[in-house]
Design a protein around this nucleic acid. Structure first.
Length: 485
RNA sequence: GGCUUCAUCGUCUAAUGGUUAGGACAUUGCCCUUUCAAGGCGAAAAUACGGGUUCGAUCCCCGUUGGAGCUACCA
C-alpha cells in the first residue's frame, strides 16, 4: 500500500509551493490507489504561528486536497486527527523522539554535545575562512568520555544530541526524479537530532515519523536533497527500511530565486481571497513542473489523479507566472454555470445583492473579469446607473446632433416592444430591422443605446444589458440619456 | 568558500540519435465588431558555450559558464 504525506511546518500560512508539494503527494498516492496523510511538524517553537495549522488545513480543504489520515480537520477550535498511527502532530510525540534519541546514544550512534553557540559559530567562521567544508568537529565526542557526558546530561546540564555520522564511504540514494545522488559521508555534518529544549529537529522527527507512519514515498521540495544522507543514516542505525524519495523542483520568483513573500503574494489564502478559483490554482500549480505529455491543458483534480506520474515531473525550477494563472482563472470562470458563479462570488458583494439578483447579472461580466473580486466593480453599472458625461453618448463617427435625433426615435420604438419580447435575441432582431429600415448605421444607434444603458464607454452589448435590466429600467435609463442631451 | 543540483522561445513546457524544434501564456498583426471582452486566422520568439562519441547530435559523454538549493539547537 502506497502511503504519502504532506508534512508542513506551521511557521506561516500555506503557500503555493507547499500547495504544489501537497498536491503532488496527493496525486501520486491517489493515482496508485494509496493513502495521503497530513502531519504537522511543529517542532520549531520560535517560529511557531498560532493559526498556522488552521490556515494550512483550511487552504488544503478549499483546494480539495483531503487527507485520508492524520490531521484531517479543524472543528470547533480543535484539530481533528484520524488514524491509528498518531498522534500526527509532532509536539504531541516528544516522548517518542526522546526514546529513539536515547536509543541512538546507547548504541553509540549519537552523542551528547555541550558546545556553546558561540563556539559553533566560531568554528564555522574559521572553516569557511580556510575554505574548508563546514560542520561540527566532534569536539565533545572526542574530548569527553561517554560516561561523563551521560552523567552531565543526566544531571541536567544543557546539551543536544548529535548524529554520529560515519566519516568514511559514501551515501547514495536513487531519487525518483533525479536518479542517483551521491554524498561523501565525511562531508555530512553531525546534525543535531534533539535540541536542548527537548524538541527534536526535523531530521530526527521526520525519520521516526515516516517510519512509524509507514510512509512509502517521501515527496518533498528540492531543498531537502542535501539532508537526505543524514536521514538515510538514521534509517540505517535504526535498522529500518527507508522510503523512496522524490525531490521536487522549486517554485521560483521572476528572478529565479526560491519563491518568497518578498516578491508578491505566496499564501494560498491570498489567492482564495482575491477570487481565484481552486480549479485554476490547482491546474496551474500542477503544471509547474509536470505535464501530461499531451496538448491538453485544462485538467480537473480527478483527471490529474488519473494522469499523474512522478516520471513526468521535471527537474528544473519553475517560475510562478501570474499571467498564466490569470488565464487559467478566466477559463474556469467561463466554465462555471451562472448559479455557481453567483454562489462563489456572492461574498465579494458583502450582502448588497441576493443570490437571485446576482445569478441574473453575472453573465454580463463573466467573460470580462480575471478574478471573482473584480465582479462587484465590474457589475456596479447593472445595479445602479453611474453618473456619466453626455459626451459619452456620442459615437466616434457620430455627433451630438445625431444622438439628439436618433435617441428619441429609438426610445419611442423600444417602448412599443412587448415585455415578452424584451430579451436579447428578440431585441437584437427587432432593433436590427429598425436600424436597416431607417438606414442608420449600427454604431449610430447601438453606441448611444449601450452607453445609455450602461453609463460606460466600455461595457457588454446593449441587448444583453437590456434583457438583464428589464424593460422598465432600460426605458428609464434611456430617458435619463434623453434628458442629458 | 564547501557540498548537491539544474540548463529548449520572455514564462510554463513538448520532442527525437535524423523534425520546417511542437503547444500554451504573454507580446504583436489582421479579421469579426457600437465599445470592452470573447472568438478566428497569422507573426515574432529557444536548444547557454566549448570539446568529444557518431554518417548525423538539442538529445549520449567531458569540460566551461551561468543559475538554484543546502551549508542552524529553522523547517
Amino acid at each position: 500500500m502506497i502511503r504519502t504525506r504532506f508534512a508542513p511546518s506551521p511557521t506561516g500560512y500555506l503557500h503555493v509551493g507547499g500547495l504544489r508539494t501537497a498536491l503532488y503527494s496527493y496525486l501520486f498516492a491517489k493515482n496508485q490507489g494509496g493513502k495521503f496523510l497530513l502531519r504537522i511538524e511543529d517542532t520549531d517553537r520560535e517560529r511557531f504561528v498560532a493559526d498556522g495549522t488552521q490556515n494550512i488545513i483550511n487552504s488544503l480543504q478549499w483546494a480539495g486536497i483531503v487527507p485520508d489520515e492524520g490531521v484531517v480537520n479543524f472543528k470547533l477550535d480543535k484539530l481533528v486527527q484520524k488514524g491509528d498511527k498518531g498522534p500526527y502532530i509532532q509536539s504531541e510525540r516528544l516522548d517518542i523522539y526522546k526514546k529513539f534519541a536515547d536509543e541512538l546514544v546507547e548504541a553509540g550512534n549519537a552523542y551528547h554535545c555541550f558546545c556553546t553557540p558561540e563556539r559553533l559559530q566560531e568554528l564555522r567562521d574559521t572553516q569557511q575562512k580556510n575554505k574548508q567544508p563546514t560542520g561540527y568537529d566532534q569536539h565533545c565526542l572526542k574530548t569527553m568520555p561517554i560516561d561523563e557526558a551521560k552523567k552531565r546530561a543526566r544531571d541536567g546540564e544543557k546539551n543536544v544530541i548529535r548524529l554520529k555520522m560515519p566519516k568514511t564511504g559514501e551515501t547514495v540514494f536513487n531519487d525518483l526524479i533525479r536518479g542517483p545522488v551521491t554524498f561523501q559521508n565525511k562531508l555530512v555534518d553531525d546534525q543535531v537530532l534533539l535540541k536542548s529544549d527537548g524538541y527534536p529537529t526535523y531530521h530526527l522527527a521526520v525519520v521516526v515519523d515516516d517510519h512509524l507512519m509507514e510512509i512509502t514515498h517521501v515527496i518533498r521540495g528540492e531543498e531537502w536533497i542535501s539532508s537526505t544522507p543524514k536521514h538515510l543514516q538514521l534509517y540505517k542505525y535504526f535498522g529500518w527500511k527507508p522510503p523512496e524519495f522524490a525531490h521536487l523542483p522549486l517554485l521560483l520568483n521572476a528572478d529565479k530565486s526560491k519563491l518568497s513573500k518578498r516578491q508578491g503574494d505566496v499564501a494560498v489564502h491570498e489567492y482564495m481571497q482575491k477570487g481565484y478559483l481552486k480549479e485554476a490554482l490547482i491546474n496551474f500549480v500542477a503544471f509547474l513542473g509536470w505535464n501530461p505529455g499531451t496538448e491538453q491543458e485544462l485538467f480537473t483534480l480527478d483527471e490529474l489523479v488519473k494522469e499523474f506520474s512522478l516520471e513526468k515531473v521535471n527537474k528544473t525550477g519553475a517560475v510562478f507566472n501570474i499571467d498564466k494563472l490569470n488565464w487559467f482563472n478566466k477559463e474556469y470562470i467561463k466554465k462555471l454555470s451562472d448559479a455557481e458563479l453567483a454562489g462563489r462570488s456572492i461574498n465579494y458583494f458583502r450582502g448588497a445583492l441576493s443570490l437571485e439578483q446576482l445569478k441574473k447579472i453575472v453573465p454580463l461580466e463573466r467573460e470580462r473579469v480575471t478574478t471573482l473580486s473584480e465582479l462587484p466593480a465590474a457589475l456596479a453599472f447593472a445595479v445602479r446607473l453611474p453618473e456619466y458625461e453626455k459626451e459619452f453618448l456620442i459615437w466616434k463617427k457620430g455627433s451630438i446632433e445625431e444622438v439628439r435625433k436618433i435617441l428619441p426615435e429609438l426610445h419611442k420604438f423600444l417602448s412599443g416592444i412587448a415585455e415578452k419580447k424584451w430579451n436579447k435575441s428578440d431585441l437584437e432582431k427587432l432593433v436590427g430591422e429598425w436600424v436597416i429600415k431607417n438606414s442608420y448605421s449600427n454604431g449610430s444607434v447601438l453606441w448611444p443605446m449601450r452607453v445609455a444603458l450602461s453609463g460606460q464607454q466600455n461595457s457588454p452589448g446593449p441587448f444583453e444589458i437590456a434583457e438583464v435590466l428589464g424593460k422598465d429600467e432600460s426605458m428609464a435609463r434611456i430617458t435619463t440619456a434623453l434628458q442629458k442631451v
